[in-house]
């Protein structure tokens, strides 16, 4: 725990010290704010459905941007050599970095509470849906982050890490959008594998263990793969 906390502190500080993180968060807020604002008055309903509908898509681009440097940069600069010769497990490095990225994601989400607060002035906002929605976004974001860290552990090139993460996440995102083309017996499998499908359940305010299990296992396996590929140093 101590090692994870040390890594977390160091990574979180370098996030909040670097202009890149602020730029990425700003873009995230501009995009979500734009889509939220344009549709809210058209729909004329006091809920956050439009925001929760668009954030998963924005995450597809936002999350790889915050995870791409986590390990790829250390590999490129060579600092990974010192880090992994310190007495700490590869998994502790991965989890510490994952939690730091999650903190940045949570910080970005906190700013979107403005939407919830302004909507609550306009009408009767369903608190359960909002809490569920944020909980779902956090879980979904965490799953994306875990995939992003895995992609970052594969390469020393941040651009490659970004693209690989984007592609994997986008596939998970699209799975339930293409159900129309899938043979009927496979539909439920594709639906179950889709990140968005589980998010829709949670964002309605329904917290089902199946959905939680899905997210936690996705996070766990991605982090496991990331720590495995960090341990597999070049040359083997």
């Amino acid at each position: 725990m101590h090692n994870i906390y040390t890594i977390f502190k160091k990574e979180a500080r370098s996030y909040f010290n670097s202009p890149a993180a602020y730029i990425v968060v700003t873009f995230f807020l501009i995009f979500t704010g734009y889509f939220f604002g344009t549709n809210l008055f058209l729909m004329n309903q006091a809920n956050l459905r439009t925001a929760f509908g668009i954030i998963p898509l924005v995450f597809v681009f936002f999350v790889p941007a915050i995870t791409m440097r986590l390990i790829a940069e250390e590999k490129k600069v060579g600092t990974i050599e010192l880090l992994v010769t310190y007495p700490l497990k590869d998994s502790e490095i991965i989890v510490g970095k994952f939690l730091a990225a999650l903190a940045l994601l949570a910080a970005a989400l906190i700013f979107t509470w403005v939407y919830a607060i302004s909507v609550s002035f306009l009408g009767n906002l369903d608190g359960g849906q909002v809490v569920g929605g944020y909980f779902g976004l956090l879980l979904m974001g965490a799953a994306y982050l875990a995939i992003g860290i895995f992609a970052s552990a594969l390469t020393e090139n941040q651009i490659v890490a970004f693209i690989v993460a984007l592609v994997i996440i986008f596939v998970f995102f699209l799975l339930d959008k293409i159900l129309f083309f899938i043979p009927t017996p496979l539909v439920s499998i594709f639906e179950y594998l889709s990140i968005d499908y589980h998010f829709e359940n949670i964002s309605r305010g329904v917290i089902d263990t199946r959905d939680l299990l899905y997210y936690f296992s996705l996070i766990f396996f991605s982090l496991l793969l990331a720590s495995h590929s960090l341990g597999r140093r070049k040359g083997d």
């Binding site: 090692n3 040390t6 370098s14 600069v77 010192l82 007495p87």
Partner: peptide, 29 residues
């Protein structure tokens, strides 16, 4: 048991010296 100085001393460019030594000390517990 080992203290290691890799070739070219790769160290985080965005940390200051004191912070870095504290970080290293914490990882060394």
């Amino acid at each position: 048991k080992i203290g290691y100085l890799p070739e070219m001393a790769p160290i985080y460019a965005d940390m200051n010296v004191l912070d870095y030594l504290h970080y290293a000390g914490e990882l060394r517990r």
